[in-house]
Design a binder for these strands. Structure first.
Lengths: 212, 212
DNA sequence: TGTTAAGCGGAGGGTGCCTCCGTATCTTCG
DNA sequence: CGAAGATACGGAGGCACCCTCCGCTTAACA
């Protein structure tokens, strides 16, 4: 009818609000009930109708993905904030710890993520990229401050973190990971040459495979 | 009333048969349709009523576990057979390859297994034990024959195998793993052969690979 | 304030989950 | 072999959840 249809309306306020509510509810419900939690439960918790949920997220996977993306972005933002902390080493340590906590609360979601990552590895790429950048910024700062060695790449660190968290079905894994992370961070510090302890008799570690 | 009911009847033939049918059907359906495949589809495929399925396996997890256990036991039996093969190194290699195939066909089940392993790590213990023994018997024989070095434990080998298969969402992972396994087995030999070209052992004639 | 399209909610048809129980079949024993 | 009783079978049925569809509501814009 009218010819200036290229004019876009402001999105409706209630739509924005509801979308946010659903995401928040989904985070809670999935974390508690695992990947097969009822979507109707999510809708109820969010205080919206089931139809509203489906309009915003047509499939269960869409909802998963949106929740997970948001979490990754929050971790990313946390890194941004921590950039301004006084002690760069401590900032990095804190970020790593937040990450462990993130995994811990997502216990129910891990299987779902395994599924999702298989189907759309675009999401995997996105989150890897995002997290690598986050960890990189913190790492760089510590290195620039002369507090950490510079021969470890962000990818390495991320891989180590993910690898450590991978065993999160064992009991007491969380404290174990936290301990290992502390050791890891300590090992990353530029150390006074006097305090060099003998290496274990493990086989030689392959050199860090630098990417890019 | 009855106090000497300790007399045990022979299990009914149809019960045994149906149980087996359900397991076989479940293997197929889960592999194809993933962990959330319909149990009624399993029952239909098995040619039994849904009630029969539920009597044998009260929960979905019970069924999963039974299927997985059976697979592990089959791998175990395969090792038993391969014990009598002429060439111990080739026997080991074949077992490792069967394992890769096993993982490949279970593509849909991986997420399910992640879930199951979290809840009942007793199953994980069982399968680890079983597979370690299987791989150990083959390894020992090759070592006893003087064809392989003796400083690698069955656990190491199993871990390497599992670790290699863990990346089975990448495209082309299977051939990659097979290649790595060949390299690995070559590395395990007492006398590393001078660059044997990687080959795919389709035939049952392994002798062509022997050269030194 | 009126117009209009974007958004909302929930009824409803469909599917799968799981239980329950009348019926069929197998084992045992006379 | 045949009866008796234990054991297993099948599927109807009630319930929860999935997802679509559409009449009603409400926010944006003029």
């Amino acid at each position: 009818m009218d010819d200036h249809t290229d004019q876009i309306r402001k999105p409706r306020a209630d739509a924005v609000r509801n979308r946010e509510r659903v995401l928040e509810a989904a985070k809670l419900v999935f974390s508690a009930g695992g990947p097969e939690a009822s979507l109707e439960a999510v809708a109820k918790r969010a205080g919206v109708g089931i139809g509203t949920l489906y309009r915003h997220f047509p499939t269960r996977e869409d909802l998963f993905e949106a929740v997970y993306r948001r979490e990754v972005e929050q971790l990313s933002e946390l890194a941004e904030q921590l950039k301004n902390a006084k002690d760069p080493v401590d900032a990095l340590r804190r970020w790593l710890r937040s990450n462990v906590e993130f995994v811990a609360t997502k216990k129910g979601m891990s299987a779902a993520l395994a599924l999702t990552f298989q189907s759309t590895s675009e999401l995997a790429a996105f989150s890897m990229d995002r997290l690598t950048k986050a960890i990189g910024s913190l790492l760089d700062r510590a290195v620039a401050a002369g507090e950490m060695r510079g021969d470890i790449s962000p990818e390495d660190l991320l891989r180590a973190l993910v690898g450590m968290c991978y065993m999160h079905d064992q009991p007491g894994w969380q404290s174990s990971v936290l301990r290992m992370l502390d050791v890891f961070v300590d090992g990353l510090r530029v150390q006074p040459p006097s305090k060099v302890k003998a290496r274990s008799s493990k086989t030689t570690k392959p050199a860090t495979n630098r990417k890019r």
